[in-house]
Simulated assay, not measured.
Amino acid sequence: MLATRAVGRNAAAMKYDILSALGAHALSGDKHRQRMVLRVMILVTTRYNWQSGELSIGRAEIARLWSVDERTVKRELAKLRAAGWLRIKRAPAKGRVTVYEIDFDQVLSDTRAVWDRLGPDFADRLGAAPAPEPEADPTVVPFQRPAPAAEPGDDTWTRVLRMLAERDAATARVWYAQLTEVEVSDGVAELVAPSRFVADYVRTHLTAQLLAGFRRVDPAIRAVKIGCSA
């Protein structure tokens, strides 16, 4: 992934590319995802400082831009931080609003699935084509990391979560740790998320990793279902 600091000679093109990726990503999702992405786009187009890479804005102003109350703003900003799209760079102080950073590398990573819909030139420009993998050496036997051994009291999900955390601690902390196992039955592992936002994100971006983790622990599992408790 390229470093998305839209300054310099190609700044204008990069800005349009980011907004195009966001728009296409929104249209591929449900109404909740569309609304969230539209709110991000409004912040970017009206208040984001591309030169400094900062978004300096208070909740009251965001509420006016989004036509919502400040409680909704607080809730939506928390979702954006959990998704990795938004970070607090400088906390608010007396007479000074919060300064945020938008992680456009994360934004583009999460919108990658729709790049091809914007044209091959778009995908090529943003580096969608993966680097070719080296040919496998037939004399080398690939090493398979064993599934974590069960400890007393462990259920299937506990073992899967521990293995996923070993591979990607950040994703496990932000996303997997929010999931709760409902049951494993007839080859299907059912998990529940605390909100529709989390459930939608996990279904879209992390189902394959979850299924691979479950199958390492229990090869009989052939599918993962993500529900929502809210």
Rank of each mutant, 00 (worst) to 15 (best):
M163C: 04
Y201I: 03
A177V: 09
P152N: 11
L65C: 00
K225H: 12
A93Y: 05
L27K: 06
L27G: 05
R47M: 12
R222N: 11
A26V: 07
S56K: 15
A230G: 15
R112Y: 07
E135W: 09
G23Q: 14
V40C: 03
Q34F: 03
V37S: 03
D200Y: 09
R71L: 14
P134V: 07
K79I: 14
Q209I: 01
K79F: 13
K74M: 00
V160T: 09
H205T: 01
K94Q: 13
R203H: 01
N49A: 11
R167Q: 14
I88S: 01
K31C: 01
S195L: 08
D17V: 08
D105C: 04
A129M: 14
G95P: 10
D121I: 05
R5P: 08
A230F: 10
L108K: 02
R90Y: 10
P120S: 08
H32E: 15
T98W: 04
V182K: 14
I102S: 08
A123S: 12
E54W: 05
V202P: 02
I102T: 02
Y16T: 15
R9D: 11
A60V: 13
Q51L: 04
H205E: 04
H25P: 02
L86F: 04
R196A: 13
Q144E: 14
P138R: 09
I88G: 05
M1Y: 06
E54Q: 14
G53C: 11
P132C: 01
A147I: 00
E61M: 11
L43S: 11
D124S: 11
A131D: 14
L164R: 02
V44S: 00
A21E: 01
I226F: 00
V73P: 06
Q144V: 15
S28D: 13
A149K: 08
E135T: 10
I18W: 00
R159D: 05
I42Y: 03
T98M: 11
S56F: 07
L22Q: 02
E76T: 10
R216D: 12
A147D: 07
R96L: 10
A208V: 12
A136T: 08
E190G: 07
A193G: 06
Y100P: 04
D154G: 02
S109L: 15
R159I: 08
R9A: 13
I102H: 04
L65R: 00
P120M: 11
D218F: 02
W50V: 03
E166P: 02
A149L: 11
V160D: 06
G8P: 06
D69L: 04
D200K: 08
T45Q: 13
L206P: 04
